[in-house]
Amino acid sequence: MKVLVMYVNEFSYTPAEKNLEEAETVLNGKTIADAILAFIQVEEGDELKDVKSREKKLVNHLKWTARKNNCKRIILHSFAHLSESKASVEFTKSLFDEAEKRLQNADFETFQTPFGYFLDLKIDAPGYSLARIWATL
């Protein structure tokens, strides 16, 4: 799994193009302030492990990043452009849903960008060291 995490002053998205036929229809975008934005690529090799172990690793990384940025909001964004390897849609969506539940149980406010869409994005991110962190998990 590859993860690029950014602290954002503000993040906005608008659905641009549905690229997964079975995805639910989403017409409206959203704006979220003061959050950790996680661009996440789940890889084929992640499916060799169970969802719970991968979800725990992801959540621990996101919680650490949030603490370093004194933040309680986390945005999960599927971003299949960090690696050539891709996990199945089902495994990826399951991992996102499980990670979101665990984060909420730890008192984080969570958001998932629409799964199965290309989105128009606006990102306002400050330029300090821990505002941007890349990791292989």
Results as ranks from 00 to 15, higher is better:
K2I: 10
M6E: 14
Y7R: 09
V8M: 08
N9T: 11
E10A: 05
F11E: 05
S12V: 00
P15T: 09
P15G: 05
A23D: 11
A23I: 04
A23Y: 02
T25Y: 11
L27V: 04
L27Y: 07
N28Y: 11
N28E: 13
G29A: 02
T31N: 10
A33S: 14
A35I: 01
F39P: 00
F39S: 11
E44P: 01
G45N: 15
D46Y: 10
L48K: 13
K49V: 02
E55I: 00
K57A: 14
N60K: 15
L62T: 10
K63N: 09
T65P: 00
A66K: 11
K68G: 01
I74G: 13
I75R: 01
S78F: 13
F79Q: 14
E84L: 04
K86C: 08
S88Y: 02
V89P: 00
F91N: 03
S94V: 01
S94F: 02
L95W: 00
F96K: 06
A99W: 07
A99P: 07
E100H: 03
F108L: 11
T110M: 06
Y117N: 04
F118S: 02
L119T: 02
L121R: 00
K122Q: 08
K122R: 08
K122C: 02
K122T: 09
D124Q: 11
A125R: 12
G127S: 10
Y128P: 06
Y128G: 07
A131Y: 09
A131T: 15
R132M: 15
I133K: 12
I133N: 14
W134T: 13
W134C: 01
W134R: 12
W134L: 11
L137C: 03
